[in-house]
């Protein structure tokens, strides 16, 4: 540390002017404590400015400090309460603001989640509707096919009447000989008891020869009660019996629900 160079640099003049940064002020203060020459120089510069400013001073009242002291009393009784009141207000406002912000963020978050779940629900509803629509379309297509069949001149319609075990029962068979298909409309049959199923038979009458052409499985869940079965037989009549689940080799005639002959 070259004290003379440091003093000659002019930094101490700026120090007294208050033109240095806080960091520089601390540094100069440390050197002043360390080197008496620096401290003396600072005091000399300060004395110069003090003398210069004193020459510009207006005359001061002799009791100048008394007047100030009177104001200090005001200050002491007046300033602390306001500053005490001010500080809490500031912090209350700060807390209130941050609470509001937190509440706002929470609200936005839940609102966002609500919207998300609403979107999910809407998406699910859309999927459900699409499925319903596609089911309806399938159903319509099926019914259209069925209607076409009814109108087809190659299709023979056979009414199957109720038999002894269930006189109110009825059914219809729509037999497309060209396509070897039979559609059974089983709307007039009661729901089969659990563990049982209807079985459809093609019959030759002389001699009476039954041939199974299929089961009316899923009777309950098939809403329109229309069942399409293959039939390549030279059928003379169709009969429907109630059989144990899975069907039987030969018809249980005591459980013959409906029967109808093919008209010629």
């Amino acid at each position: 540390m070259e004290v003379e160079k440091y003093i000659a640099s002019g930094i101490l003049e700026l120090y007294v002017a208050g033109a240095l940064t806080p960091e520089e002020n601390v540094e100069v203060h440390r050197y002043a404590e360390q080197y008496p020459e620096i401290k003396m120089e600072i005091e000399a510069i300060e004395a110069t400015i003090m003398k210069l400013s004193r020459t510009a001073s207006p005359e001061l009242p002799k009791d100048g400090f008394k007047k100030i002291e009177a104001e200090l009393d005001d200050v002491i009784t007046f300033v602390p309460p306001t500053s005490k009141k001010k500080a809490p207000w500031g912090s209350y406002l700060g807390w209130a603001a941050s609470l509001l912000l937190a509440a706002g963020l929470l609200w936005v978050y839940t609102e966002n989640n609500n919207l998300k779940s609403e979107i999910e629900v809407s998406t699910q509803e859309k999927l459900d509707l699409e499925e319903t629509l596609s089911n309806i379309k399938k159903e319509a297509a099926r019914q259209e096919t069925f209607l076409d069949m009814l109108r087809d001149q190659n299709v023979t319609v056979i009414a199957l009447g109720g038999q002894a075990v269930s006189p109110e029962s009825y059914a219809k068979a729509y037999w497309d000989k060209a396509e070897n298909k039979v559609v059974i409309d089983a709307k007039g049959l009661p729901e089969p008891p659990t563990g049982f199923t209807y079985q459809v038979w093609s019959l030759k009458l002389d001699p009476l020869t039954p041939t199974s052409i299929g089961l009316l499985d899923d009777f309950v869940s098939t809403e329109d009660k229309l069942f399409t079965l293959d039939n390549a037989n030279e059928s003379e009549a169709f009969g429907i019996t109630l059989e144990p689940e899975g069907g039987s080799e030969s018809p249980t005639l005591e459980q013959l629900y409906t029967l109808g002959a093919v008209g010629r």
């Binding site: 120090y15 007294v16 002020n25 601390v26 100069v28 203060h29 300060e46 400015i49 100030i68 200050v75």
Partner: peptide, 21 residues
């Protein structure tokens, strides 16, 4: 001077000389 009194706790050496402050 009243202001200086109310700010008395704000002075430290980082602000330079007391006269400067």
């Amino acid at each position: 001077f009243v202001k200086i009194w109310t700010k008395s706790d704000q002075y430290d050496t980082s602000k330079g000389r007391f006269f400067t402050w």
